[in-house]
Amino acid sequence: MSWTFSGERPIYSQLVEQLQLRIVTGVYPPGSRMETVRELANEAAVNPNTMQRAMSELERRGLVFSQRTAGRFVTDDPESIAALRAELAQEKIDRFLGEMRKLGYEKREVVALLEREERT
């Protein structure tokens, strides 16, 4: 999974999104130790302060936690990860429905299309 950023939005929020995706998809497995902020910043070619800010936000959301001397770890609570996964899925659904509405589809028409998709 590579890091890509678009210039139009704050790097900070894009980092939060991409780090969350890595936690949900198990690139960073539950309970695993994360690289240091500087290592991650270097890997993503972003500013260490911005990476630090993104990491604090993940901490605030309970997705990662710091242990004073040992470093920073991904949460090992399956419920937090499941909740995050559901939240990300909901965002995708909202975005998809928004796009379909622009094309003139009602929600039930979208559902009908999806059911047909499932049968094929």
């Binding site: 950023f5 210039g7 790097i11 972003v46 302060n49």
Partner: peptide
């Protein structure tokens, strides 16, 4: 731009802008 905390725009010897980069994008 992805590595910058802050940006300073200089034009004809004057500072046009000094801002946090993410706040600017926002």
């Amino acid at each position: 731009e992805s590595v910058l905390d802050e940006v300073v725009f200089l034009k004809n010897g004057k500072i046009m802008l000094h801002s946090n980069a993410d706040e600017l994008r926002e």
